[in-house]
Simulated assay, not measured.
Amino acid sequence: MLAALRREGDPYALTAGQLSQRMLVTTGAVTKRVDRLIARGLVSRSVFESDARGRVVALTPAGMTLIDQLIEEHLANEARILRGLADSDRAALERLLAMLTRAVGA
Rank of each mutant, 00 (worst) to 15 (best):
A3W: 02
R7G: 14
Q21Y: 10
A106D: 10
P61E: 15
P11H: 07
V43Y: 09
V47E: 09
D68M: 00
L100H: 02
T15S: 13
D10E: 14
L42Y: 04
Y12F: 10
I81K: 08
A39C: 13
R6W: 13
T26I: 10
T101N: 06
D51N: 05
R33Q: 15
L19T: 00
A62R: 10
P61M: 05
L2W: 08
L37F: 09
V25H: 06
G41H: 08
K32F: 13
E72G: 05
D10M: 14
A52V: 08
R102E: 07
L59P: 05
M23N: 03
A79W: 08
L70S: 08
I81F: 05
D68F: 01
E73D: 02
E72W: 03
T26S: 15
A103G: 02
P61C: 04
L93Q: 02
Q21P: 09
A76E: 05
I81G: 08
P11S: 13
N77V: 00
A62S: 10
I38V: 07
S46N: 02
S44T: 12
T31D: 12
R90Y: 13
A76Y: 01
Q69A: 14
R7N: 12
D35Q: 15
E72F: 13
I71F: 12
D87N: 06
R53T: 10
